[in-house]
């Protein structure tokens, strides 16, 4: 390793260190919270769950709003994680750019679909 400070400093990487580290944890904790809420609702449903019981879990307005917010947070969580993976293993800038674009399109498409499912309930 040669000089890596001042004007010689290597400026590569994402540069969102603390912000994304913290966002990764908060969005992860939010999804864990949603998991436990859904799990509690499943366990509190009397009798076999079936379609009615399962749909009833997501039908209250507050649950839709919460699930919507958590889905958006989750998409950001996945973006940070996948970007970390691409940054670690894929060095050529062109291929990395293609993979980044693929990741964003993949995520936004899935998010749009999930949100549609949620709000038409």
């Amino acid at each position: 390793m040669s000089v890596n400070y001042g004007s010689k400093r290597v400026v590569t990487g994402a540069h969102y260190g603390l912000r994304d580290w913290l966002a990764q944890r908060i969005t992860g904790a939010l999804f864990a919270l949603l998991t436990f809420i859904v799990l509690a609702k499943v366990l509190l449903t009397s009798g076999p769950l079936g379609y009615e019981g399962w749909a009833a879990i997501f039908s209250p307005q507050w649950m839709k709003a919460l699930t919507f917010a958590v889905f958006v947070a989750l998409a950001y969580h996945i973006w940070i994680g996948m970007r970390d993976i691409w940054m670690d293993y894929v060095k050529p800038a062109g291929i990395r750019l293609v993979l980044h674009v693929f990741t964003i399109v993949w995520l936004v498409a899935c998010l749009g679909w999930a949100v549609q499912v949620l709000w038409r309930l």
Binding site: I78, G81, M82, I85, T103, W106, A109, C110, V117
Partner: peptide, 22 residues
């Protein structure tokens, strides 16, 4: 994490079909 990212369309499909209608 990478596995769930790649299987995300399937996961959304499972959510969609299980919850949308009888």
């Amino acid at each position: 994490g990478a596995l769930m990212f790649l299987l995300l369309p399937l996961i959304v499909w499972l959510f969609d079909t299980s919850v949308s209608s009888e």
